[in-house]
């Protein structure tokens, strides 16, 4: 493979800029993801009776379930807006490498997910009087989000082209994303409960491996998913 040319980065950044600018003006995606995340946390609060003892063991699970659900919402929407009114066809007509389009979409999706997480974390910390701002946990959240978005962007590009596009993404994404979600939960709860680093290392390694594999695969196969 050739080394990415400057135009590759330009194309990629152009897509990121377009998505961020559109989102900055409408704020429909982020607000939906945020409100949804808070609702999920409220439901968990009562469904699991999050008192001090329970919280210790389930915080990581609650956080990642919230992120995964909100992430699906964002992924679906961000690809659906491209599909509507033929924006995707316009992007495909541009004389750039298909993987630049993939990376552009993935980076803006990742940005949205990180913004949501950056708001959910302090809210959760405040509501439950725990400090979630630990460097280890933040690293896990970054790695987990990268893996989830990397495979999610590819699958969202597929699901918006199906007849049942509103329901298809979670069904396609969740079974494939199980390794990254579970490894993230494991590593997060390790950091939150102050486990030995040697115990956290294994799920961290898995996160990195997952990220690498599921960035490489879309890079190679994205063109097969978007071509008409």
């Amino acid at each position: 493979m050739k080394a990415p040319s400057p135009s590759f980065f330009k194309a990629m950044m152009a897509i990121v800029r377009k998505d961020l600018a559109a989102e900055f003006r409408s704020r429909e995606l982020l607000s939906a993801m945020l409100v949804f995340s808070l609702l999920v946390i409220i439901i968990f609060n009562f469904a699991l009776e999050l008192d001090v003892k329970v919280r210790e063991s389930v915080t990581a699970g609650v956080l990642w379930t919230t992120f995964a659900f909100a992430g699906t919402l964002g992924l679906n929407r961000s690809m659906a807006v491209e599909k509507d009114r033929g924006c995707m066809d316009g992007l495909l007509l541009a004389p750039v490498d298909r993987s630049a389009i993939y990376f552009g979409k993935a980076i803006s999706n990742l940005a949205f997910m990180l913004v949501v997480e950056a708001i959910v974390l302090p809210v959760y910390s405040m509501l439950y009087n725990t400090n979630l701002f630990q460097p280890g946990l933040l690293l896990v959240i970054l790695l987990g989000s990268i893996g989830y978005i990397a495979v999610g962007t590819l699958l969202a590009a597929m699901s918006v082209q199906t007849r049942t596009r509103d329901v298809m993404l979670p069904i396609l994404l969740f079974p494939i994303a199980i390794p990254v979600l579970l490894a993230a939960v494991k590593a997060s709860s390790g950091f939150l409960n102050g486990a030995e680093f040697s115990e956290i290392l294994a799920p961290l390694n898995l996160l990195v491996v997952y990220d690498l594999i599921f960035i490489a695969i879309p890079l190679m196969f994205f063109e097969y998913v978007v071509e008409e």
């Binding site: 390794p179 579970l182 490894a183 494991k186 898995l206 997952y210 594999i213």
Partner: peptide, 8 residues
């Protein structure tokens, strides 16, 4: 990968 992560 699922197999490995469940083993953890």
């Amino acid at each position: 990968l699922t197999f490995m992560v469940i083993r953890l």
